[in-house]
């Protein structure tokens, strides 16, 4: 994972194709020059930040890097990774999805309703994903076809989806007791919990979609220069619609992980997930202006944010300081992106 990350962040996103084969390097400065160049640091921000945090926390508290703590950090980051990947696709087209967290809440409530009605686990999971996809589709159509600013559309669906979740659940959580779900949240292979494995598989698929398919190229083209993309026959409206659907589907998958972890489907606000998904994307070096994205960056960003909260908790720092520290880290990362080429 780390090896791939190095290559990916080093090449700054859209040039990641040569991976494996002899890389096409003429435009890339030498390693020594690269270290002096701030723009390279910007690309590496998340990884450097993660390493720095790990070193600091480990030196202050030796249990930080214990296998048990690493495992719990990974599990804790799974949902955020999934949401951040969805957010990455949207941000890559120069959009933003403020509704990811409430979409996840709505999907979780739908999951709970279908499950409580006795339709079984597979159908409940499918219903959650479909619910997420529907919210994404509404977002996408309103942004692409309705030509309403992404910010306003998703702010609207943020409110609407959490409202709908409250209405559907009548404000009450539904307890979900299911052995497979319990296994999903507690089982592991080595230090990798099943939920993290799900998240990493999604990340791998997302990476292939973004860098190895026509759709991925069109996503980056739409974010880079929508007008040019349109003139060359890229259906930018369709691309913009699809990225919101992807974000919605991933919010649906996130809801499954959430229900498995909490053991209940509750209409909670989950605001932290929204802020952290955007933060992970920014930390990952994805340009909010679109056209420049990696998958590995936001994944590391999500790990960094989780490690930050985990480390502060281990050090006994009051919970109240956690949002403050997340805020500082995100603004610092955004500051670094100023030096991106």
């Amino acid at each position: 994972m780390t090896e791939t990350s190095t290559r990916e962040t080093a090449s700054g996103g859209s040039t990641s194709r040569g991976a494996g084969a002899a890389p096409h390097t003429p435009a890339r400065p030498s390693r020594a020059a690269g270290l002096r160049d701030l723009s390279n640091w910007a690309d590496w921000a998340a990884l450097v930040g993660l390493i720095v945090l790990v070193v600091i926390f480990q030196s202050l508290n030796s249990t930080f890097l214990s296998p048990g703590n690493i495992q719990s950090m990974l599990v804790a980051s799974a949902i955020l990774i999934v949401l951040a990947i969805g957010q990455t696709f949207v941000v890559a087209t120069a959009g933003i999805d403020l509704s990811v967290a409430s979409t996840m809440t709505l999907a979780a409530v739908v999951f709970g309703m279908v499950f409580t009605a006795g339709h079984g686990l597979p159908l409940s999971m499918a219903a959650a994903v479909v619910a997420g996809a529907m919210v994404g589709l509404v977002n996408g159509l309103l942004v692409a076809r309705g030509r309403i600013t992404d910010f306003i559309v998703t702010l609207g669906t943020l409110s609407a989806a959490s409202g709908l979740a409250l209405i559907l659940s009548d404000g009450k959580p539904a307890t979900i007791i299911s052995a497979p779900l319990l296994k999903l949240s507690t089982g592991s292979i080595g230090i990798f919990g099943y939920s993290v494995i799900v998240a990493l598989v999604i990340a791998l698929i997302a990476h292939i979609v973004l860098f190895r398919t026509r759709f991925g190229t069109h996503v980056l083209a739409t974010g880079g220069n929508a007008e040019a993309a349109n003139a060359t026959g890229v259906r930018t409206k369709r691309v913009k619609t699809w990225v919101y659907v992807i974000s919605g589907v991933l919010a649906g998958i996130g809801s499954i992980l959430l229900v498995a972890r909490v053991g209940a489907a509750e209409p909670a606000a989950n605001t932290a997930f929204l802020l952290n998904s955007v933060a992970a994307v920014v930390l990952g070096g994805v340009s909010l202006f679109g056209g420049r994205a990696t998958i590995i960056g936001p994944v590391i960003g999500a790990l960094l944010l989780t490690a930050l909260v985990n480390g502060l908790t281990l050090l006994g720092v009051s919970q109240f300081y956690q949002p403050l520290s997340v805020g500082i880290v995100v603004v610092l990362a955004a500051f670094l992106t100023r030096f991106q080429k």
Binding site: S14, T217, N225, G291
Partner: peptide, 21 residues
């Protein structure tokens, strides 16, 4: 086009095949 209709964030091959990959 005058404004070239190239995507700066993509490479030469990606631009030449954009929309018809």
């Amino acid at each position: 086009y005058q404004d070239l209709a190239l995507c700066d964030n993509l490479d030469v091959v990606q631009n030449m095949y954009l929309g018809r990959e």
